[in-house]
Design a protein around this nucleic acid. Structure first.
Lengths: 331, 331
DNA sequence: TTACCATTTGAAATTGATTTCAATCTCTTT
DNA sequence: AAAGAGATTGAAATCAATTTCAAATGGTAA
């Protein structure tokens, strides 16, 4: 491969001068043009490995999501990718499947790559408190970290997330208003922040409206996926007249389960979700759900992360975005 | 940050010995253990920039997709990510939106990063023949490239793709068998390989069955997206009794357009798609479509790419995977 | 013509690892 | 006890850039 030395030799200058051309340093216009011509002719492309060995900011950002197949994370990836690209950063992607072992190995890869910052796009999967030592080490080594939608474990990191409590509170209230009395709740693992808070909003609404809380119809286990929604819903059939689901995929599973058992949505059982993925408006009955402001969350996450990297932000913050509920056919 | 020199000093050995420990070189067991302890204690993590400045294979693979939001590409990303991770490679992701300018800037970033290989996951977007010089330069510089689903422009690259011709041929035949006579065709840009070939299969089936080809009901323009499917379908209403769509998203758009105009799918107009995305089985009516073997294509692409990188593959190939049609409710 | 200042330039150090080559240390064998 | 073989180790070069410091060059004013 062509190096800066080859260019320097052909141009009759020192490598330092070529480097200055590449970095807009002070070089006489005529020499600059001569060097640029040679660079073009020789197909020279600088080697980032060497460039960023000297420079401080590697311009690389690591992003971890639990499931690229979940449209909510596809959207997160898209928004973050675009925001960063605009600012000359680029993205290394890790897909953790919600497993801490995977997440750990991805984080270690990010460390070796000396990424400037990391965005954790996770808010579902296993309990990941055991990653705290790695996060601490990364922070100590100057790698900036922003969480979206998970606990901060007392770390010096921003947390940007939707107000989960308020989301399920609003939608449960809506169900009550439409006359539903036996409202069930299904979601993924209890240990997760998303589960904890979404459950909290649901309970809050029931309490305020004086409805009885029945542990039999609250099921928080397994993954935030369609199949699991189906599985859990089967246990609630004929016990409830509405179900608040932990996310849209589970809600879609719930609708499938209800229909497969000869019942109707929303006539027999109302179903509502959380996320407002693309799909939710397309299925039938279309899904009543809590809209997650993914674009906003992702952009704030990027903005904060770059703020940290540029040294403009020094103090961590927890930023909650207020969600809206979207009323459609399923409830 | 802690370096190999710091570790060497604390252990009373030379950096070379520390490097040997990191790379499983010959080191006395007792010194190895001593060094490992210090590495652990000092939180040392090697710097890949320096590591791969010396080593030939950077273990980085660049992947370009036109749209992370399209489930077909989410799936591609997932499969490729997993396959590579298993083999100690990792992924740098670029989202091109089908724009050649974006694709160009992503490719340049890959070059600077000295990726070992690139997978082009594109098969839609603008005509990208103008990227040939960049691909040539990358190949000359030893970066291996594999295309999935696009023209190879005479380059020394593998092309792995679904047999598009066969896919639309089969599904058009199916429509004819069910008694449809006026079958329309809608898709994205004509210049794309996917469009060209899918159109070819459609035309082949019509000709073989002796049906008249009517240019008025063949519309190839715009993007492979839902909205565009809707837009094009509106022009075909009342002119056709079936529509073959370039992909599933367009087909879903087609169904929406038909229903919004008071017609029924499949009673008034049959609709079929191409891809078999997750969504297609969930909507109502569920979509009859050509199943794209994305997992298989992606895995072969990875396998071939790593074969090239390891020097085990020397000759480019074009690999076509035969698709199956999935009959559901929409046709 | 000289002094002074600003603009260009290059030599050499630096970044953090790996790798080669030669030297040293341990054994085993005679 | 000496020789030889094999296992460990370190010094220095290398990878491909940037950056610092000092030197050279050019232009202007006194």
């Amino acid at each position: 491969m062509v190096t800066i030395y080859d260019i320097a030799k052909k141009a009759g200058v020192s490598p330092a001068t070529v480097s200055r051309v590449l970095n807009n340093g002070p070089v006489r216009i005529s020499t600059k043009e001569k060097i640029l011509k040679i660079i073009e002719k020789e197909n020279f492309v600088p080697d980032n490995r060497a460039v960023y060995l000297k420079k401080l900011n590697t311009k690389k950002i690591g992003l971890i999501v639990p499931d690229v197949l979940n449209p909510i994370y596809s959207l997160k990836i898209k928004v973050i990718h675009d925001y960063l690209k605009e600012r000359n950063y680029y993205l290394i992607l890790g897909n953790s499947y919600g497993y801490v072992d995977e997440e750990k190995s991805i984080l270690e890869m990010f460390e070796r790559e000396r990424v400037a910052g990391v965005i954790i796009g996770t808010c579902e999967g296993e309990d990941d408190s055991c990653l705290v030592p790695i996060f601490t080490r990364m922070l100590n080594n100057g790698i900036k970290i922003v969480f979206t939608g998970k606990k901060n474990y007392g770390l010096k990191v921003d947390v940007i997330s939707v107000n989960n409590v308020s989301g399920t509170y609003k939608i449960t209230n809506y169900l009550i208003k439409t006359g539903r009395k036996k409202i069930g709740f299904i979601s993924g693992e209890k240990s997760l922040r998303a589960t904890e808070e979404r459950l909290e909003g649901y309970l809050k609404a029931l309490k305020e409206r004086g409805l009885k809380i029945d542990k039999e119809i609250i099921l928080c286990e397994g993954e935030y996926k369609l199949e699991n929604g189906k599985r859990l819903t089967k246990k609630l059939l004929r016990k409830v007249d509405a179900i608040v689901c932990g996310n849209d995929l589970m809600a879609i599973g719930a609708i499938k389960a209800i229909e497969e058992n000869g019942l109707k949505v929303p006539d027999d059982i109302s179903v509502c979700g959380f996320d407002d993925i693309f799909l939710s408006s397309l299925i039938k009955p279309s899904l009543t759900t809590v809209h997650q402001p993914i674009e906003k969350i992702s952009e704030i996450a990027c903005e904060r992360l770059i703020g940290w990297i540029d040294g403009k932000i020094k103090k961590e913050e927890e930023i909650l975005i207020e969600p809206e509920i979207i009323i459609r056919e399923s409830a």
